[in-house]
Write a protein that binds this DNA or RNA. Structure first.
Length: 506
RNA sequence: GGCGGAUUAGUGUAGUGGCCUAGCACGCGACCCUCUCACGGUUGAGACUCGAGUUCGACUCUCGGAUCCGCUACCA
């Protein structure tokens, strides 16, 4: 078994947008597969016909495409084990359900929802198992003739697993170690529904993982309680020798309060919980996405990877390849990780300021300016981006940080004025205009030298002059070095702004 | 309620019995840089859930309490 090629899968059900927690699960699967020279496949688990949401599958595929997680086979790609959509594998499952029925590890049950309801109401903590299945209408209590008759009559039966009682089931988990559970607490889970001719998750999952030669099942912690059932299924099928290894990942928790991260937290706290924007086809509700919010996929990947896993190094920035090389379940934590949106922003900031000026300019800045109808040649745009990029968290911030290059301030920040505008500012600036006016070459060094010499000669306070100057040019006490700004603005505009401000600020 | 899992600063984590006066990062504060805001650098406050054991010695092992999380569907 250990010499089998590593094969993992990510198997979401298409019930809506792909949750960020699901993205992390997929990411860990991906990292593990690549680390071990293995393969990862994408399977769609749409065995619940009632919860199917159109568009969800495409959304999932597009999300991973954006994030840079490439699957080796599966839905949208194909492969030797196609089809990868469970709703298209009906006939396959039927065969295996029959195998379990024949070997006595499963049985037919005809109990109606109402009858089940009644049983639950009558017995506290009721569960359909070895102790209670005598009360049900199933092929264990009914005669063979009646069972055949009911099925022949088209009655909507269900197939349940027959869990043998009093057995300790061991689950070997890559992150949690050995977990032992007694079969008495397991119920006879439904494996197959005749109503839609589809298996439930448990059956389909085990059959597919076996058929698709999955070696490692890496999934969320919510599956840990049903892992023993899955172990049983492998055993009942006779596949125990090739049973995959399990790894149950800790959950992603709400940033504040109790519980796991949900869609509503994003709405409430104002951050996305989905990779891409999603419009619910039924309700029309719109959920924001990381892509549309201006996140770089690399930043999201890095952030998510370190939420529950840590390579044990004293740094936080890793490329996908580095993470692949470093990934190991030994360093996956066992407890749930609170989602920290501030850190997500920091990651984006880091990835953005580490981008080349050219890339930021061509990919984001120039298109942004064009959309606003602002003419600006590439050289100038490049210079501006270089000056402001250290202050941005999102590409959109590029505009906020640089708009003053294109738009003369129409108002002046109150706080800045209060702190930096001195009684002598108007006189100083009036004089500055006279100093600037004769300068023929308005470049950075030249202008700076002339202005600084003037300040020194007159014995003025550099801070007072420069900050007052800054307010008239930028509109607030912020931004790049002043002469970098004026060199881009040019003499005419610089002087015009000072004069305009002088006329407005009292 | 039952069963399972978990528990290091506000958050993500390092730590595998003595190296811990518990490290790193985000966030918060200060200082330096400086014409401002960022960036960068330095730095401050801030944590081993509690109680018993085991041990010469426990953040690290065992047991119990507390708390949190998950599961408990003809959903995944």
């Amino acid at each position: 078994m250990s010499d089998r090629k590593v094969r993992v899968r990510f198997a979401p059900s298409p019930t809506g947008a792909l949750h960020i927690g699901g993205v992390r699960t997929a990411l860990y699967n991906y990292l593990f597969a690549k680390k071990n020279g293995g393969e990862i496949l994408l399977r769609i688990e749409d065995t619940d016909s009632n919860r199917f949401v159109p568009g969800a599958e495409d959304y999932i595929i597009e999300s991973f495409k954006w994030l840079g997680i490439k699957f080796d086979e599966g839905v949208g790609i194909g492969g030797p084990h196609a089809p990868y959509r469970q709703s298209e594998r009906r006939e396959i499952y039927k065969k295996y359900v029959q195998q379990l029925l024949d070997s006595g590890h499963a049985y037919y049950a005809f109990d109606t929802p109402e009858e089940l309801e009644a049983m639950r109401a009558a017995t506290p903590n009721f569960q359909y198992d070895a102790r209670t299945r005598q009360q049900g209408k199933n092929s264990l209590t009914l005669s063979k003739e009646e069972v055949d008759q009911r099925i022949a009559a088209g009655e909507k039966y269900v197939v349940r697993i027959k869990v043998e009682p009093d057995e300790n089931i061991e689950v070997d988990d890559l992150v949690r170690g050995k977990v032992v559970i007694n079969s008495n607490i397991l119920d006879d889970k439904v494996l197959y529904k005749a109503a839609d001719e589809l298996p439930t998750y448990h059956l389909a999952n085990i059959v597919d993982d076996h058929l698709m030669e999955i070696t490692h099942v890496i999934r969320g912690e919510e599956w840990l309680p049903s892992a023993p059932l899955h172990v049983l299924l492998y055993r009942y099928f006779g596949w125990a020798d090739t049973m995959p290894q399990f790894a149950h990942l800790p959950l992603l928790l709400k940033p504040e309060g109790n519980g796991k991260l949900s869609k509503r937290d994003g709405d409430r706290l104002g951050f996305p919980v989905f990779p891409l924007r999603w419009v619910d086809p039924k309700t029309g509700d719109v959920s924001s996405g990381y892509r549309e919010a201006g996140y770089l996929p690399e930043a999201i990947i890095n952030f998510l990877a370190l939420l529950g896993w840590n390579p044990g190094l004293d740094r936080d920035l890793f490329t996908m390849q580095e993470m692949i090389d470093l990934f190991s379940f030994e360093h996956v934590s066992k407890s749930g990780a609170r989602f920290d949106y501030e850190k997500a922003k920091w990651y984006n900031h880091e990835y953005l300021i580490n981008m080349q000026d050219e890339e930021l300019t061509d990919q984001y800045y120039l298109p942004m300016l064009q959309q606003k109808g602002i003419a600006c040649d590439r050289d100038k745009a490049l210079k501006i981006v270089a000056l402001v990029k250290s202050r941005i968290n999102f590409p959109a911030d590029l505009w906020e940080q640089s708009s003053f290059f294109f738009e003369r301030p129409t108002s002046y920040d109150e706080k800045s004025l209060k702190k930096r505008w001195k009684p002598e500012s108007p006189a100083l600036l009036t004089e500055l205009v006279e100093v600037l006016a004769p300068i023929s070459n308005f470049d950075i060094e030249g202008t700076e030298k002339i202005v600084m010499d003037w300040i020194e000669a007159k014995g003025y306070n550099t801070g007072t002059v420069m900050n007052s100057f800054r307010i008239t040019i930028v509109g607030a006490a912020k931004g790049p070095q002043m002469f970098d700004v004026t060199a881009i603005l040019g003499k005419e505009e610089t002087i015009a702004r000072v004069k305009a401000a002088l006329a407005v600020i009292k």
